[in-house]
């Protein structure tokens, strides 16, 4: 009894130290990940156009941002591109995952290898190979970039939906069919709700990847189109327009708030998820 209490105390002391170390380590990693973001946010309030000197606080760039046509055009292109490519990739990807899952072992593996190609291949190789193909039948522009983005987005959707399909309770769908639901009704009422979390995270990943892509866009875009990424790349030598920092800060803070809301919204999930697995 005594020994137990002692070792309990000892354990408590060590685990207290461990907790402290753990906190410090997590703090350091977060600092590493967010330090450059902090720098960019500070720069968006910098009156000086130079990156290296602090010229005092200003909101000027936020004001000018919305009247800067070039930046606004690039923003619209980027958002439309991300939304459309994520949407189309999600539709094709979810259907593909359902189909691939029903395949026999060998075909299943072949399809999964093809699915992994755009993920495994270097972005630069994907971008170049698409560009070499596009020039044969279409002008490089918004359309070619959209196709390219869909191409690299589909695998993310498939990979996030596939685990949900594996866990799916097939009897529910069977029961619905037995009770007279047709295939389409059964799909929307029974299968889709079970896959929803995978579909949402797949769509979100695809959207994020598309927003953040530079390399593939750079090679497939042609002269007329520019996204925020390619615009920023073009400005590296000349110096980044301060409005760009302001815009990035707005996008970042918006996403921060959205993600915060989504993550800390009161959860309604049933506690016994595990038992539903098939």
């Amino acid at each position: 009894m005594v020994r137990k209490v002692k070792s309990g105390n000892l354990f408590h002391g060590i685990s207290g130290l461990k907790n402290l170390l753990s906190r410090c380590y997590i703090g350091l990693i977060v600092l590493f990940l967010y330090a450059p973001i902090l720098v960019l946010i500070v720069l968006s309030f910098n009156r000086s156009r130079s990156r290296v000197t602090w010229g005092g606080f200003t909101l000027e760039w936020y004001g000018q941002l919305f009247s800067n046509r070039q930046i606004m055009d690039a923003l619209v292109t980027t958002l439309v591109l991300a939304f459309l490519s994520a949407l189309i990739a999600t539709v094709i990807g979810v259907l593909a995952a359902l189909g691939i899952h029903a395949m026999r072992q060998r075909n299943y593996q072949i399809m999964m290898i093809f699915t992994n190609i755009p993920i495994l291949n270097a972005d630069i190789v994907t971008g170049i190979s698409l560009m070499l193909w596009f020039v044969h039948f279409m002008p490089l522009g918004f359309g070619s970039v959209l196709i390219a983005h869909i191409t690299f987005n589909i695998p993310y959707v498939i990979l996030s939906v596939m685990p949900k399909i594996r866990q799916m309770n097939v009897s529910l769908y069977e029961a619905a069919r037995d009770l007279g639901a047709n295939a389409v009704y059964g799909f929307f009422r029974v299968i889709l709700p079970q896959l929803l979390s995978g579909i949402v995270s797949g769509f979100f990943m695809a959207f994020t990847m598309s927003m953040d892509d530079f390399v593939i866009t750079y090679f497939t875009k042609g002269a007329g189109v520019s996204t925020l990424s390619t615009m920023i790349y073009g400005e590296i030598r000349k110096g980044i327009k301060p409005e760009m920092y302001a815009l990035s800060t707005i996008i970042f803070v918006t996403m921060f708030l959205i993600l915060l809301a989504v993550n800390y919204w009161p959860e309604k999930k049933p506690a016994v998820r595990e038992e539903q697995r098939f």
Binding site: S15, K18, N19, S22, R23, I26, V30, L33, Y34, A35, P36, I37, V39, L40, L43, R51, T208, M211, D212, F214, L228, S229, I232, Y233, I236, I240, M244, Y245, S248, I251, F252, M255, F256, L259, L260, N263
Partner: peptide, 28 residues
């Protein structure tokens, strides 16, 4: 150790930086 095994928080911390343009972050 800190019982922060929840997936949500981790996703949040690691994915959020991607919403600041990658080239800008490298410039930073």
């Amino acid at each position: 150790q800190l019982n922060m095994g929840k997936k949500g928080f981790m996703m949040f911390v690691l994915i959020l930086p991607m919403w600041m343009n990658f080239i800008l972050r490298i410039l930073a």
